[in-house]
Amino acid sequence: MNSSQTRLTLILLLSPFLLWLGLLVIIPHIDMFFLSIREKVAPRTYETSLANYAEFFTEPFYWNTLARTAFMSILATVLTLIIAFPVAYYIAKMLRGKTKSILFLLCLLPFWVSELVRTFGWMILLRETGVISSSLQWLGLIDGPIEFLYNDVTVMMGLIYTSMLFMVVPLVSTLDSLDDSLIEAGYDLGGSKLSILKEIVIPHSMPGIISGCIVVFMLTLGNYLTPILLGGKSSMWFTGQIYTQFITRFNWELGAAFCFLLLIVSSTIVWLGLKLSGQTLASTVAKS
């Protein structure tokens, strides 16, 4: 194939991606940016200003919500990692053959159902008149009904549940590539379980850990459904705030500014995470 043909193939292959990137990502973001830096001074008269951003910083409710969302997302990511790591280690290193694939498939199974349906599932279990509350009453363990929904613990649980798969998959694939003899060599040379985990298993699986964490963090920070349905009004999730500005209050300018602030915060946290762990985006997400 000559070079002009190669170039044509490349252009044809890339064009759907470029169209998607241009039409659905870049152009809306540019538009959103201009929207975010204009201020309504009178009906149908706008001025360029940073008033929307200023409002975010002057109104504590807004930045508190963002800070809380970021903190909860980091916590959810860390907890997901702590729960998913032993699961992934068990699947990748302790199991062989058929049991391994079955267990791996079981991790995927809940994700054949849409997130909305799964969240409603949680609501059926946890609401005041739900399965858990009424079973506990039936058993005589509690006197009156208990509302398990609409608190931070439930939101956190829902977020971790939604994120598990995205942590388990990259972890299993990096742990799979860890040669068993390295672990054995660690024991042979006098290592304890803990030191082998710290010096051999975790350094080896760092790319998987980081890529899992980035994906889970991004998904959690930008999640709307789970915090709103399980946390209700008290969830104070930043995406809920963006929704309110756009849909309830018709304040697209402020909503657009919020979108950018969310983007800046998530990118900064991911960048910091990569810096602190000494990894790069290419060595983690691109690899697994």
Partner: peptide, 29 residues
């Protein structure tokens, strides 16, 4: 247990730790 036995094993594929430098590998034990 293997980590307390006074024997050491050179593995078939050597099992050097790729996450450590040569000196760190030797110093591990």
């Amino acid at each position: 247990p293997p980590n307390k036995r006074p024997v050491n094993l050179v593995f078939q594929h050597l099992a050097l730790f790729p996450m450590m430098s040569v000196a760190e590998n030797i110093a591990y034990g």
